[in-house]
């Protein structure tokens, strides 16, 4: 694993191909994707269902393997690594926020947040932990089990967990997909703050133009290819662009 002190790119993919199934039933989810994720940037990946946006996220994060092409995390080419090594990379450099089922039901909010650190046996940075908790407003909820938290609180705990180990990059898969609009807006603002104030890198997949408008940069995906890119988006512009794609 080679990693320089301050890599310019948090993650990248070069000529990524991903096929599911074989022969007649084969489906090409990624069709030659090349993408670079800059550090301290909030990137959103948008596209209609079946465009391959989730596949792109999963292969970038090392949860899934590319059929062809290469990808890097923090300058480490993960496409050559073994399963155990990829797990190591995920643990060290990546945080995750999923749409639902983000938390281990038997662990308290605090335990869920520190889970990645516990797994790697790293000591929790108390000041950093308190800062995150303060920003996310979870101070009163730390001893609660996930079942005792609201949907918005659960997602905030998930974000806190992703932030606590100061990962190179956070991947979020429709983080606000299951939330009402207020909680969703709150959550996305937190993520935006994390990028702006702490220089956190975040890649988020969404199909919601409003959610995407919180990002610094939007990649539009269609049929497994990146078809467009937008900087400084607003919800209206995103919506217009989506309409062009036929959605």
């Amino acid at each position: 694993m080679t990693s320089t002190a301050a890599p310019a790119l948090a993650a990248s993919m070069r000529d990524g191909y991903k096929d599911y199934g074989h022969g007649e039933a084969a489906v090409r989810a990624l069709d030659g994707v090349s993408v670079e994720i800059a550090r301290s940037e909030f990137t959103a990946i948008m596209g209609p269902s079946g465009s391959g946006k989730s596949t792109l996220l999963h292969t970038l994060a090392g949860l899934d393997k590319l059929s062809a092409g290469s990808s890097t995390i923090a300058d480490t080419t993960i496409t050559q690594l073994s399963e155990a090594q990829v797990t190591e990379v995920r643990r060290k450099y990546i945080g995750f926020v999923f749409q639902s089922f983000n938390l281990i039901p038997s662990l308290t909010a605090r335990e869920n947040i520190t889970l990645p650190l516990d797994i790697s046996g790293t000591k929790v940075d108390k000041a950093w932990f308190d800062e995150i908790i303060g920003i996310l407003g979870l101070g009163q909820r730390l001893t609660h089990l996930p079942a005792e938290l609201s949907g918005g609180q659960q997602q905030r705990v998930a974000v806190a967990r992703a932030l606590v180990s100061r990962p190179e990059i956070i991947f979020a898969d429709e983080p606000s997909g299951n939330l009402d609009s207020r909680s969703g807006a709150e959550l996305l603002s937190f993520m935006q703050r994390a990028v702006k104030e702490f220089g956190q890198t975040i890649v988020m997949v969404t199909h919601d133009p409003t959610a995407a408008s919180y990002a610094d940069r939007i990649l539009f995906l269609e049929d497994g290819q990146i078809v467009d890119e937008m900087r400084e988006p607003t919800a209206e512009r995103v919506l217009d662009r989506m309409k062009q794609m036929g959605h």
């Binding site: 949860l63 399963e83 155990a84 797990t87 190591e88 995920r90 643990r91 060290k92 990546i94 945080g95 995750f96 999923f98 089922f101 983000n102 938390l103 281990i104 889970l115 990645p116 797994i119 790697s120 967990r161």
Partner: peptide, 11 residues
């Protein structure tokens, strides 16, 4: 989820 956040198979 545990695997995604970095738990190894051995664990």
């Amino acid at each position: 989820l545990l695997r995604a956040v970095g738990m190894k198979r051995r664990s």
